[in-house]
Simulated scan of single mutants.
Amino acid sequence: MQPSLLVLAAGMGSRYGGLKQIDPIGPTNETIIDYSIHDAIDAGFGKLVFVIRAGFEEEFRALFDAKLAGKIEVDYVIQEIGKVPEGSVYNLEREKPWGTAHAVLMAKNSINEPFAVINADDYYGAEAFTTMADYLTQSVTDEEYCMLGYQLGNTISENGSVSRGVCETNENDFLTTVVERTHIERLENGIACRENEEWIKLAPDTIVSMNFWGFTPKIFDHLEAQFSVFLQEEGHQLKSEFFIPSVVATIIKDGKTKVKVLKSDAQWFGVTYREDKEKVIKAIGKLIEKGIYPSKLWA
């Protein structure tokens, strides 16, 4: 069975100042998602599911349906604040999406096979998709998941703070815990995360999650259960977020799953801030010069 690829593309892009998910960065108006989809198809993924915001389906379909026709099956699901368990109570003034774990939960009725999750605004590298596809088709079981690990020092923006899932692993490269750190940046004396107005130093080779996860449909049961608890505890807040690393950390702690951290030498880059865009354009240009991609991706 071919794995599916779930693309998280419903973010508001507040730090970027626009809809960065479909902002062109390639020589013939390709987006970062285009390169991820291209790599996923080559790696053997058979279905693509976009998680998008309400009101943007027509724009996404216009951008992707025609060029992907005959190459991979495409589906769209909508992430909306009001899509919560029946009877849930939350702050009706909230505008911010519920977060990455809620976005994954939106695909419950669209995915019935092992699947990978990625961010729409991150470039992960062709090798990473091959590594993930091989694991999902050969090694994954209902309660054994995986993630692509990247070194923190290679994922920091030069233009401001970033959010990363900071990981700890055992000697067999299984995840023991992962903590979402929402404010990490490079300071004069090294990399650090800010927690409760204090700075905690982090080593550049710290393994972090870039939201490249491998799951089976069993994850949806865990997401539903934990989302109900999250809403009870934090649903009244305007900016609280239900993160994938938080869900994974809980089910590891409860002994309900194992998560293999896959190693990859693939190059990563992404756009958190608008100032990151020029660097990404140059990076894609170098990959085209090396012959990794054609100048017109979908020719």
Rank of each mutant, 00 (worst) to 15 (best):
W199G: 14
G285M: 05
E275Y: 09
D39F: 06
G70A: 06
K263V: 09
I81V: 13
C167Q: 13
I33L: 01
T206D: 04
Q21D: 02
I37A: 04
Y16H: 15
A116D: 03
S4G: 03
S36G: 08
F269S: 09
E168H: 12
I191D: 00
P27L: 00
D265W: 06
Y123F: 03
V271H: 06
L152F: 09
H236S: 07
N29E: 08
T100C: 12
S4D: 12
Q79L: 09
Y123A: 00
V280P: 10
Y16K: 08
M12A: 13
V259H: 00
D65E: 04
Q232R: 10
S240I: 02
P294R: 13
L68N: 02
T176Q: 12
T169D: 11
G99H: 04
W268Q: 06
Q2E: 11
N154F: 08
S14H: 12
A116M: 01
K282N: 11
I111C: 04
A283I: 02
G270V: 03
K286Q: 11
I184S: 01
L238S: 07
T155P: 12
A120G: 13
P85A: 01
E278W: 11
V178D: 01
E95T: 10
K239E: 06
I72N: 08
G13W: 06
Q267L: 13
K286Y: 06
G17C: 01
I32M: 10
E86N: 10
L48P: 04
P114C: 04
V259L: 04
I292K: 14
S295G: 07
K277E: 13
I244W: 07
K218F: 12
A9Q: 07
S139D: 06
I251D: 03
R186V: 09
S163P: 15
W298L: 04
S88D: 01
A9P: 08
D42H: 14
A66T: 07
Y135D: 03
V247S: 01
R186S: 13
I244E: 05
N112D: 14
K277D: 12
A116I: 02
Y135T: 05
S88A: 08
E93I: 11
D276K: 08
G285Y: 05
G235E: 07
A54F: 03
A66S: 12
E278D: 12
V117G: 00
F115P: 13
I244V: 15
G82A: 04
S14C: 09
F227P: 05
R53E: 00
W98L: 08
K96R: 12
Q226P: 05
Y123T: 00
A116E: 06
D142P: 13
Q151Y: 11
A43D: 06
E180Y: 13
E275W: 06
K290H: 05
K108Q: 11
E73H: 12
K282L: 11
H183I: 00
K258C: 05
D34I: 00
T250H: 13
W213A: 00
S295M: 10
E197Y: 05
D221T: 14
Q237A: 14
T131G: 02
E93F: 10
L187S: 08
